[in-house]
Amino acid sequence: MNRQPLTSRALKPTIFFAALVPLALLVWNAFHDGLGANPVETITHETGSWGLRFLLLTLLVTPLRRASGWQALARVRRMLGLFAFFYICLHFLTYVVLDAYFDLHYILEDITDRTYITLGFTSFVLLVPLALTSTNAMVRRLGGRNWRRLHRLAYVAATGGVLHFIWLVKADLREPLIYLGLLLLLFLARVPAIADRLARIRGSSPGESASSARQIAT
């Protein structure tokens, strides 16, 4: 451990505290009349946006590691994924508590009748097993191959999240389309031919590109 350079050792705590900044800002603003005229809407949008951003950041880790050869990145992937889940949980809770006021009938009708809520809710549900199986013990229990297969649901959830955003916008699609573009780039980076090119940027061996799941387990 102490043989690693400082940047690698500092990476995890740095990202941990940085990832809490959006939440800290929300809390600060909530107590300082800083959430605007419609605080519930602001909280909903902020937690949702950060959930989506962390989900995309999680999917960025592997291509970035391949391209940079910086293996320490693999160790923050789980944390980023869990922060994505954390913000999406807050997003969902905001909806249940502040928007729907625990009105189960209203919530169920939304989930069944409103496409954007169906998409968002499905994506949230898909992330639950991923969060639950994120521990080292669960990776060992499932075995690397099964674990990787299960965790491909992250792509489905990210796609659902972006569609959820696109679907609720009234007219100005610019912002959700940026997320869609980023997601497509992340998919592209996983096309084998492109993944190998990324790996060659820093001369890391192609064999490493498939081993990200093992890395997290070790």
């Binding site: 005229a37 419609n38 519930v40 809407e41 009748d113 409103r114 496409t115 954007y116 679907w167 609720l168």
Partner: peptide
């Protein structure tokens, strides 16, 4: 795409 049965008074 969304319900009009309720509203949030600012």
């Amino acid at each position: 795409r969304w319900s009009q049965s309720k509203e949030r008074r600012i």
